[in-house]
Each structure stands twice: as structure tokens, then as C-alpha cells.
Amino acid sequence: MISNNKIKGIIYIILASLSFATMNLFAKLALECSPYQKTFISNAVATIIISIIILKRKDSFLGKRENRKYLLLRGVMGTISILTLYYSIESLLLADATILTKLSPFFTIIFSFFILKERITKKQLIFLLLAFIGSLFVIKPQFNAAIIPALMGVISAVSAGVAYTMIRVLGDKESFFTVILSFTGIATITMSPWIFVNTSALTLTNITFLILGGLSFTLGQIFLTLAYKNAPASEISMFDYIGLLFAAVYGFVLFKEIPDYLSLIGYGIIIVVSIINIYFSKSSE
């Protein structure tokens, strides 16, 4: 019988997946805004909300001195991840951009090997290779500029992999909200100069979309935290792939996007390999 906590964890991770897919949707709807402007506005909203939470909880804004280098790297890589994600969303199908972000756990395994000295098993190496093959079906490598948006999606996943590894390095040494602020704060500060470039794109409609995107991002982070507080990642992570379904529905209904058969094959490979990887990770605990 499934425990109440596991049911809560599943519900929360589905809500997190929906929130992140919705964030991507609002970013795509904000036509003509640059990825820099999208990154600034959505993260500024999240920064304000997280700062209020930190004030109420009396957590640290900057973290402990010995942890700041990890917080800085987490923030920089998180900023690169969301910036390149927004770039890829402009040209890719929502579902394609979403599935490429799902490669981040595999890159986390790689960076955990180099940074945390965690062992990589033969099975994990096979899963990494299969996930890479699956991504090629989505990317459809070409020797021209058309490949750039897909490569940006992969860079987003790589950067997220480093950021997630830093979260693992930090563990319980810092408040979760301090860790989030290290990301949203750095993204807001570094992207702020770009808000003044091509201001004609910052219409009331676009700003509203990006504010809603920032709210969706914040909710996603909170739901994700609640999910993993209620159940182990190995038991609920597979439900995160429901986000691909949300993205596909958004793309079809609002943009008439229909993934081709190569992308569908890629989705299947990445999802199946990810679920098998989760299963083996669970059985080895």
C-alpha cells in the first residue's frame, strides 16, 4: 500500500513539473523579448518572493563564508542554465526543449564523479550513452546554424548538472531558500543591464507573461522541495516526466506544434533510460 507521504510526494512533483512547463510556456509567449530580458524578469520576481521568505524565516541571504564559493558556482551555472533554456525555447518545440532539460540528472552523475568522487557504475555508463543517443534523435545534428538552439538546450542541461552537484555539495549546510537565492539573485544582477536593450519588446503583455513565468518558477522550486521532503527521489523522480506531457499539450494547443517521429523516438529513449536508472539506483540503496 502506498504511504500518504509518497502520495503527497508524487502530487507535489507533478505540480512542480507543471509549474516548470508553465514557466517555459510563458517564456515562449513573451515574443521578441531577448533571453536576457526573460531571465532577468522571471528571476527578479523569484528573488523578491524568496527574499521575503528568507526575512520571515530569518535565514541568511549570503550563506556561511565557507559555503559561498559553492553558492556562487551554483548561482552562475543556474543562470547559464536558464538563459540557454530560454534561448532554446525561442526556436525549438516546447516538448523538445523540455526533454533536453531532462538530461541534467545524467550530467549530475558525471560531475558528481569528478567533484564528489562518487563512483560511476557500468550500468550508469550504459545509461549515459543511451541518453546521449536519445538526445541525438531530438537534436538531429546538422552542420549549420540550425543546430544552435538544440545545443543551447544541451548546454542548459550540462549547466544544471553542475548546479545540482553544488546543491549536493552544500547538502544541509545552508537553508534551501538561501541556495535558491544564490541562483535567482545572481541571475537578476547579471542580467539587469540587458533590460535596457531593445526596450520596445517590453510591452505590458510580455512583462505580464514573464512575471507569471517567475511565479511559476518559484512555485516549481517550492513544490519540488515539498516533494523530496515527503518521499525519496528514487521513488518519485520518474513522475517529473509528466512535464513533457504538459509541454506537448501547451505546444500543440497554443502553437500547433507536433513533434516529428525522430523526436518521439528520442523522448521514448530518454524517458525509459531515466526510469530504468532510477529503478537501479533505488535497488542499490
Rank of each mutant, 00 (worst) to 15 (best):
F106D: 03
P105K: 05
I2H: 11
L215W: 01
K69F: 12
F127W: 11
F255S: 01
Y250R: 07
G243P: 12
V179C: 08
T165P: 03
C33I: 15
K6T: 15
K56T: 07
E257Q: 13
L202Q: 00
F217Q: 10
G134N: 02
S237E: 05
L103K: 04
V76Y: 13
R74K: 12
A146L: 05
L116V: 02
I270H: 05
S159M: 11
M23A: 05
K64S: 13
I148N: 09
G266C: 13
S175N: 14
L129N: 04
A187N: 03
I236M: 06
D260F: 06
S200D: 10
N144F: 02
L202T: 02
T184H: 09
A227Y: 09
F132Q: 10
V162R: 00
S159H: 03
L55W: 08
K58C: 07
G268L: 13
Q221A: 00
S192K: 04
D240F: 07
S216H: 03
Q37D: 05
I222D: 02
K229Q: 12
I126C: 09
L103H: 12
Q124M: 11
A231D: 04
S91F: 01
I189K: 09
I236L: 12
E32Q: 14
I115T: 04
A46L: 09
I147D: 01
F183R: 06
L202E: 00
I120S: 05
T205M: 06
K58F: 08
I242W: 09
F183I: 09
L92W: 01
L73H: 05
T178E: 06
V197Q: 11
G268C: 14
A231T: 07
F111P: 07
K123C: 03
L210R: 05
L151P: 01
L15G: 05
F106W: 07
L262C: 10
D260Y: 02
L128G: 14
S135T: 07
L18H: 08
F255T: 01
I147L: 02
Y36M: 15
L18V: 14
V273C: 06
G134Q: 05
Q124Y: 01
S200R: 10
E235A: 06
D172P: 03
I99A: 02
I82A: 04
F114M: 04
I89A: 03
E257N: 02
